[in-house]
Structures are given as structure tokens and as C-alpha cells.
Amino acid sequence: MTYQYSKEEILAKASDLAGKLSNSDQIRFYKQAESKISANQKVQRLVEQIKKYQKESVNLQHFGKAEAYHQNEAMIDKLQAELDAIPVVQEFKQSQEDVNDFLQLMAKLVSSRVMDNKQ
């Protein structure tokens, strides 16, 4: 005989698992990197400039201003390269990849267990 879990029991277990995952090394490192990014004024300035140029690019493309659009895109690429060269940004991007890989692994494990128990 197999036990049938209620929706509430499953949600409670999922909440418990989420709490445990949020205390993992990968998630803690990600949160620290995110805090550093948020506190870094140079990073925030570059992000705002990139957003501004991206909005301009949408408008330029919409109005068929090809040359201005390409100049704008070149500026975005330059600013993005400057942003990507900052060590705290590199650290943040690596932590994002690590967390993504970790969460994908967790999702595969859960899916695998669900399918194994289904049979």
C-alpha cells in the first residue's frame, strides 16, 4: 500500500526543501555576489547607461534610423564589455551559472523520483 500525500503536505515539504536550498553554499554565494553588485556604484552606473542605450536602440530601429542604431549598438557593446570586465560582475555571473546548474540538478532529481515512484 502506498501513502497518498495531500497537496498541503507536498507544499509543506517543498517549502522545507526551499528553505534548505536557500542555505546551501551555492545560494549563499549567489546572494553575497548579488549584494556586492547592488552596492557597486560603477556597476549600477553602467547598467543604467546600457538600459538607456537599449531604449534608444528600440526607438531608432522603429523609426528606421539604421546608422544611428548601429552606433548605439556599438556603444552598448562597449559598455557591456566594460561591465563584464569588472571582477564583481564576473563573480556574480559565475555564481548565477552555479546556482542555475544546482537548481537544474535539483529539478532533475525531483522529476526522476516522481517518475520512478509513478511506475
Rank of each mutant, 00 (worst) to 15 (best):
D84H: 08
V43E: 15
Q32R: 15
P87W: 15
M115T: 03
Y69T: 00
A14F: 04
V88A: 08
D101G: 14
A74V: 02
V89L: 05
Q94C: 01
Y69N: 05
L109G: 09
Y30V: 01
Q94P: 04
A18Y: 11
K13V: 09
V58T: 15
E56L: 13
F63K: 01
I50V: 02
Q41Y: 08
E82V: 00
V110P: 12
T2H: 12
R113V: 11
S112V: 09
K93W: 10
Q61H: 07
R28V: 14
A33F: 12
N72K: 10
A12C: 03
S22P: 03
F102K: 13
V58Y: 02
L103T: 11
R45I: 11
D116G: 00
L17N: 04
T2Y: 02
V110S: 15
A68P: 07
L109M: 09
R45F: 11
L83R: 02
D16P: 04
E82H: 04
M106E: 09
Q54L: 05
Y3S: 10
L79N: 06
S95C: 08
N23K: 10
M115P: 03
I10F: 09
L46H: 12
L11I: 09
S112Y: 05
S95I: 03
L21F: 05
Q90I: 14
D98N: 14
I76A: 06
N117E: 13
L11F: 14
Q80V: 06
